[in-house]
């Protein structure tokens, strides 16, 4: 009896969540700018990566610390900015002109709302990231001097899937931060320097390895150097994302809408 009750409650909760998820993904699909941002993630990442792969010469490949995948995901440096924009803008729509009040009137359970929002952001960004990861590899490698890696080589599939995971985690990092900061502008001001400038300004090993993009991109190498491996590096990025998502949740939970 109690089992059937608890099962029916969880089924109800699940269908309620599914409804909110559908609503949140409709929001994303009905905003043209978001689709465009996601298209840019693919175009910029794949474009720059393939371009870089063609320019890889034999002398770079002969260097002792050369990794066969070094250039394969070069475009991610720029493509991740589009991912940050996607995550931040998808959330920022709620903080324009009181839209959040309409959303929370429709979905008063904030945990359900937030989880659905993040899922609606994560699913398309993982899909686009996965396609991007495959295209970067499959289109880029044959163009490198000497033919590059094949999809069956060690680390190849890991890197393709890793590209999808990396972009998803970066997108969620931005989405959580946008919830905390109630808009996209501050997120871009914070994350773009953190991802694009800080790693190039700070020199030396140590702390820098634990920055979100450095750590997360260990998974994109066949044999990553440094103290973090491919999966532990990704886990460090996941911790950054978890912190941001948690901070966003605390803010959403406590604040008046």
């Amino acid at each position: 009896m109690s089992v059937s009750v608890s099962v029916s409650v969880s089924v109800t909760a699940f269908t309620a969540f599914a409804a909110v998820l559908r609503s949140e993904s409709l929001k994303i699909r009905s905003a043209r700018s978001l689709g465009l941002t996601l298209a840019l993630v693919f175009a910029v990442t794949a474009g720059f990566s393939v371009l870089m792969s063609t320019s890889l010469g034999p002398e770079e490949q002969a260097a002792p610390d050369f990794d066969p995948l070094e250039s394969a995901y070069f475009g991610l440096n720029f493509g991740q900015v589009a991912a940050v924009c996607f995550g931040a803008l998808a959330v920022a729509g709620e903080y324009r002109g009181g839209a959040l009040r309409v959303s929370l009137t429709a979905v008063p359970r904030r945990g359900r709302f937030y989880a659905a929002k993040l899922a609606a952001v994560a699913v398309p960004s993982f899909a686009v990231g996965l396609v991007t990861g495959a295209v970067c590899f499959l289109a880029g490698q044959p163009l490198t001097a000497g033919g590059g890696m094949g999809p069956g080589d060690p680390g190849a599939v890991r890197a393709m899937v890793g590209c999808g995971l990396y972009l998803t985690l970066i997108t969620l990092l931005a989405a959580g931060l946008a919830t905390l900061l109630r808009g996209a502008t501050a997120v871009l001001g914070l994350l773009i320097p953190l991802l694009m400038i800080v790693p190039f300004v700070i020199r030396g090993e140590g702390l820098i390895e634990y920055l979100p993009d450095r750590a997360g991109r260990q998974i994109l190498f066949q044999d990553p150097v440094g103290s973090l491996g491919p999966w532990t590096g990704l886990a460090v990025l996941a911790l950054w994302t978890a912190a941001s998502v948690w901070a966003g949740w605390e803010a959403l939970r406590r604040r008046d809408a």
Binding site: T15, A19, R22, S23, A106
Partner: peptide, 8 residues
């Protein structure tokens, strides 16, 4: 449509 979806 967004609001209708959320409210089933």
């Amino acid at each position: 449509r967004v609001l209708a979806a959320a409210g089933r």
